[in-house]
Design a protein around this nucleic acid. Structure first.
Length: 285
DNA sequence: AACAGGGCCAACCGCTCAAAG
DNA sequence: CCTTTGAGCGGTTGGCCCTGT
């Protein structure tokens, strides 16, 4: 039953790769390819490494045409834009940046871009560590490009059915240009904004850009199942009408509205909603 | 010069899903 | 149909390096 064992875990080398190991692996793959079987590769190459380790080393460091230098401004913009839309799908983001690996992008985001982006938007109140949780669309394993094909980086439109809940602390955007990028709805788009009580105690928020906000105002509750149902209603609505729209995760709204959501005095069952529309500069009206 | 702290990044860990048997 | 493994992915860690004190 099952396949042959992967590798002798007791007898594999871990830690940094030596130049000799790199040379062996590179030379073998360049001459013979991977053979579609990473687990068998170390033995063929003559390395005391796990197949997974070989795969990682090849993909992240040894394979040809990899860029190792600093990221360009254009690359940064692409990463930011995609992260906001699809979350931490590093492999999908990497697919849009030739020569960059998912590991590279992930490291770059975690060490530089995240701080850079958040630094532009000082938080109103530091002890409110509010997080938006992300429900970007599940990748289709048969067609990983499907999501990306529906993305258009520059114009602010979002993929159909994409639910974007970036894991970013709540903040009030201060840059008009960034507001437009983060809240890329056309002027006049109606909005429904409600606290997401499904994330009990975190004061996270669920934001929705809806063509019919009033119809959803009264159906929110603390149950994540019901929130899923609401997402479903949005999906159905957009599908049946062909209109574009999705859940969005970043907002710009008046202080008093922010405050009414931020402060944790609400009961879990309390429902607060805000209805408005996106104004000329991306702010709420 | 010595140490602490933070940044950076390669590599590992652990999970999910599909495929092999 | 069930169990086990492989591939791929995102999250996390550990160690090196740099900078400030």
């Amino acid at each position: 039953m099952g396949r042959a064992p992967c590798c002798d875990k007791e007898n594999v080398k871990k830690g940094p790769w030596s130049p000799e190991e790199d040379a062996k692996l590179k030379s073998y793959i360049e001459q013979n390819g991977t053979g579609g079987n990473w687990i068998a590769l170390p033995q063929k190459v003559g390395l005391k490494r796990c197949g997974k380790s070989c795969r990682l080393r090849w993909l992240n460091y040894l394979r040809p045409n990899l860029k190792h230098g600093a990221f360009s401004e254009e690359e940064e913009n692409i990463i930011c834009s995609l992260y906001i839309r699809i979350g931490s799908r590093w492999s999908l983001i990497a697919a849009q940046l030739p020569g960059r690996t998912d590991n590279d992008i992930k490291n770059y985001w975690n060490t530089k871009l995240k701080k850079k982006l958040l630094g532009k938007f000082p938080r109103k109140d530091d002890h409110h560590q509010n997080q938006y949780t992300c429900r970007a669309p599940k990748q289709d394993p048969k067609n990983p490009q499907k999501i990306l094909n529906s993305l258009e980086i520059s114009n602010g439109d979002s993929p159909a059915g994409c639910r974007i809940e970036p894991t970013l602390p709540a903040y009030i955007p201060s840059s008009t240009e960034m507001i437009k990028r983060l809240l890329p709805k056309p002027e006049g788009t109606p909005l429904l904004i409600t606290p997401d009580h499904s994330l009990n105690g975190t004061n996270s928020h669920l934001l929705a850009a809806s063509p019919q906000p009033s119809s959803f105002t009264n159906c929110l509750s603390s149950s994540s199942a019901e929130l899923d149902d609401i997402f479903g209603q949005f999906d159905s609505f957009y599908e049946s009408t062909g209109m574009s729209g999705e859940i969005i995760g970043l907002l710009s709204m008046p202080d008093q509205v922010i405050n009414s959501f931020m402060y944790p005095s609400m009961e879990a069952s309390t429902m607060v909603s805000y209805q408005g529309s996106i104004g000329v500069n991306g702010g709420l009206v």
